[in-house]
Design a protein around this nucleic acid. Structure first.
Lengths: 190, 190
DNA sequence: CCAACTGTGTGACCTACATCACATTCAAAA
DNA sequence: TTTTGAATGTGATGTAGGTCACACAGTTGG
């Protein structure tokens, strides 16, 4: 199992922890395996973990009243996913997280994250940095959504994450871009 | 001048600092005054500060090739604004920040923020928390943009920040919602 | 006081994208 | 192998919202 190595390298890109510190941090992560299609967080659930992807691919998404799906994020290896709103506010999940492919994740409870953040300054720094990156990416996506048409957004996404093209069904890509699957289909067949 | 009190109370909501610590933190903030319409960050500028609003109202926005404006954020008192992408990556500004009304702000350089974060654990915690809130808000806005029509988004915004209605010209509200000013006008006259 | 500008309303038209309906392909399950 | 059901393609049609054009405030400044 090299879950440990993957997480270690991921964290080491941002902050340096001693071997001992990292072992301690790592001891709070619970490995889990999920099958393709399996739900990790379902609407209405109590949310107390966030998930670090080791292998596979997750999606976090919202389903509206007309049962239409909107994808907030695809989570590939070394990405994090959860319903952060529910996680931080202690409310029930409104966002779902499930598996696009068979996946291996490390699960960290919110309580443990806060404990680690307060015990080890560098860990707090790491999580600040991570959230920051997410925030900036989210702002960019907002702008792109307002500014660019569907074709442009599609090309942007494919340029940024070409791997998605092979792994993720096109209707999910449409749900991420905020267009219907029919429109997306017409876009790239021309 | 009670800039100090305003910042103190703002931070105290999240973390507790000793009087001494706070004085030290505060000494890194530079007060500035701006007139209505004045530019704080312009496209192409080198960005090295973020701004904490004491009084007045700022907007952060992007202008596209067709000279159309998209507003990322309105910043009212106790809110923060900057081009965070440029600030964290050391690139030139692509986002503008300017004043909707005469404004008073406290300016904190990125270097000082990082220094304070590394010197005082609680400050790092504060900034993690702040960014986290921003991230969650940004996700919500993304979903709303994909999910809801213009009228719904308008009502949502007015419910969340009724103060904006009086302070901010409607064309700016339109630029925030991602609709044309004409469409917005038609929406609330019916 | 008038000029100039900035903000807002409203009509006529246009377009990107949604929706619905059905056909087709492909993969999993029985 | 056959069956079932996802995932995709494609046509016909509807609609929210964009764009352009112009009229009419309300404010600011000379």
């Amino acid at each position: 199992m090299d879950a440990k190595r993957i997480l270690k390298e991921h964290i080491a890109k941002i902050v340096s922890l001693t071997g001992e510190q990292f072992d301690y941090v790592f001891s709070h992560f619970k490995p889990q395996s999920y099958k393709k299609g399996q739900t990790i967080i379902g609407e209405g659930d109590k949310v107390d973990c966030e998930y670090f992807v080791l292998e596979g691919c997750l999606k976090s998404f919202y389903i509206n009243d007309e049962v239409k799906m909107f994808i907030l994020q695809f989570a590939m290896p070394t990405w994090w996913a959860s319903d952060y709103n529910a996680l931080y506010n202690g409310t029930k999940a409104t966002i779902n997280v499930d598996c696009i492919t068979d996946s291996q994740v490390l699960c960290l409870s919110s309580a443990d994250r806060e404990k680690l953040c307060s015990e080890i300054h560098a860990v707090e720094h790491f999580f600040r940095w991570r959230t920051n990156k997410g925030y900036i990416a989210s702002q960019k996506r907002l702008l792109s959504l307002m500014n660019n048409d569907a074709r442009h957004r599609y090309e942007e996404l494919m340029a940024l994450y070409p791997a998605l093209y092979n792994i993720v069904p096109k209707q999910l890509i449409a749900a991420y871009l905020g267009v219907s699957r029919e429109t997306l289909s017409r876009l790239y067949n021309s």
